[in-house]
Design a binder for these strands. Structure first.
Lengths: 340, 340
DNA sequence: TACTTGTATGATAACGCTAACATATCTGAG
DNA sequence: CTCAGATATGTTAGCGTTATCATACAAGTA
């Protein structure tokens, strides 16, 4: 009827009627029923977001920035938090049942994945099939392969690691250590690769005893790994490039425990730009990943897909950002010198 | 038709037909259209969650735990992140339009609130009216008054502050300082009140020069406030009870800068159990609020309302939890002694 | 036999909206 | 005067479900 025309600003309506309708709507606290509208329009103005631990601040930032973008385009987000592969799949089914217009798949950290990698591959296949069968566009944030056709938005960890090393070198460091994650898969491998590439490019040999590992993504473990390193090596590096901020915080604690000052005695640089980088004194110098940018980009790409605009099919890489802190000291070249 | 009966396990269906239907459904990757179902059933199995900064880990934890509870009851969450009062209201309208079955209103931190408190009150009134007009049940998490009828789930900050003081006293401290927030409204006032109450109950006088303030909820500012305090007072307290973890981290940095060790020279206790409490070495001893519990409780209360089960109308208080760290030292009574 | 009860399935309407078409009035051009 | 086009409004059908009622047959009971 005419009411629909008024509320949608569509077609011809006389000013008189329009005014009347709007007045009535206000008086009755009328709120159009989007469910009914969705049924006939065959779109819900709702996107599904699939994730695991929203407690993880990085994921929360993805959600925050996506929410912002989608809202400005009149879309809302249905959240589906999975804690198991089974949950994850049923989450997709539920979202499809609720007729979301599209999906964003955030990184999934499930306990059962590492134990059963084939279960994950199988889940990806099933989800891919479901999404394809329902012809729902989707974007993957992070490094998971959901299907060959996934458009992924990823952080450029390798560039980040290179950026860290380049900065240390620019600040005069030549003897550079690296605290890495023991099980160097995925993003960790990228960080290690970035480190090695930047060192190589600068013509610096990586001394083996300065590359040491931490078994867990944990401050405490990083501290102990660093203590062990400090007690083991014959000569100390002038700077340690840490695979993430937690490691850097742990390293800093270890150094302090041995009576060494950061950055006077040794420099530290982290990677992530997480809250941890703001807990130390001085603040940690680190390479900050840009979760807000990633979330925004992911939302934008999905909107492009939804509006059937042309979209670049390759991975989207989000560059990191240098975050100045106080844990890297400028040293003169004679302090550094050759090594290895 | 019969299909509906099969999928809903309702009414009489022969085993033969049932099998046939399920087979077809699987073959066609059939997913029932919840939108159509919602239209006729007049419920969506969806709840709206209203919040501001989901980047805030505490809010993210609310969402995480609520998501868990709702999911186990077959409900999903539509997120509405507001960044202004206007956004917030339009968020409610959108959610109502999408016919959510109920709402959870998380704490709203909007820039324009502090400047225009009456705008906030007005917004609350409007939202209350909307929710009432649409007869949607809702639960408020935190201390905001949305309406007189709001059921609120709150952290017992006062009990937390008392717990902190009681612990310090149990550990032999008598000379206790307090780093508080300058603008002592709301939750901050509760914390201060808890502190004072516990001190009074223990018969300890609160020495005025040991109560000092920080103007911003910020590590750096807390550090400077503490430095100023350290340089000002004639005698130091043996312990400082901090209004939150950030303050404690700042205080710790200040003490370290003055060459004092925590807890050897002075003890510290925080409040919140935030990430900050895990960034220090040793870990901060703190009173941890329980956002996961709060989120769970809020979801449970909303489910009760949705199922029209009897619900206690008063505020629900979530008790805090003592989180052991290494920043409080046990001292003998002769070290403490009378004060003031 | 006739009536009840349990089982199984189909037909119809309705949920609140919008697309598509039909109708009606008005304006100005030829 | 007539017709085209713009303006304004109403009518109808349909989106994919489920509630309700109607129908049908079987088995058991009086």
């Amino acid at each position: 009827m005419t009411v629909s025309r008024v509320l949608n600003n569509k077609g011809y309506v006389s000013d008189e009627k329009r005014k009347k309708v709007l007045e009535c709507a206000k008086r009755l606290n009328y709120q159009p029923n989007m469910i009914a509208r969705s049924l006939v329009l065959n779109r819900t103005s709702t996107v599904g977001v699939l994730l695991s631990h929203i407690e993880n601040p990085v994921y929360a930032q993805y959600v925050a920035s996506m929410s912002r973008v989608f809202r400005t385009h009149g879309m809302d987000i249905i959240l589906s938090c999975a804690s198991s592969v089974e949950d994850w799949i049923s989450g997709v089914k539920t979202l499809l049942g609720k007729q979301v217009d599209g999906l964003v798949i955030l990184p999934v950290e499930l306990d059962d994945i590492s134990d059963h990698p084939q279960a994950w591959a199988q889940a990806c296949e099933e989800v891919g099939k479901l999404l394809c069968a329902n012809a729902k566009p989707y974007v993957v944030v992070g490094d998971s392969y959901v299907s060959d056709k996934s458009i992924r938005v990823r952080h450029d960890y390798q560039a980040g690691a290179e950026m860290a090393v380049d900065y240390l070198i620019k600040m005069g460091h030549r003897k550079i250590g690296h605290l890495r994650f023991e099980n160097g898969d995925g993003v960790w491998a990228e960080r290690l690769e970035g480190f090695e590439r930047a060192m190589k490019r600068a013509g610096l040999h990586v001394r083996a005893e300065w590359i040491y590992s931490c078994g867990d993504d944990d401050v405490y473990r990083a501290m102990h790994a660093t203590l062990e390193m400090l007690d083991r090596v014959s000569e100390l590096p002038t700077a340690i490039c840490c695979a993430n901020d937690k490691f850097a915080v742990g390293a800093m604690q270890a150094l302090n425990m041995r009576g060494m000052r950061v950055p006077e005695d040794i420099s530290l640089i982290g990677h992530d730009g997480s809250l941890y980088s703001r807990c130390t004194s001085p603040f940690l110098t680190t390479i900050s990943i840009q979760p807000l940018t990633a979330g925004t980009r992911a939302a934008e790409v999905l909107l492009d897909l939804l509006h059937e605009r042309p979209v670049d099919r390759g991975d989207v890489f989000v560059p990191p950002n240098f975050q100045e802190g106080g844990t890297v000291r400028r040293i003169h070249t004679e302090d550094g010198g050759a090594n290895g």
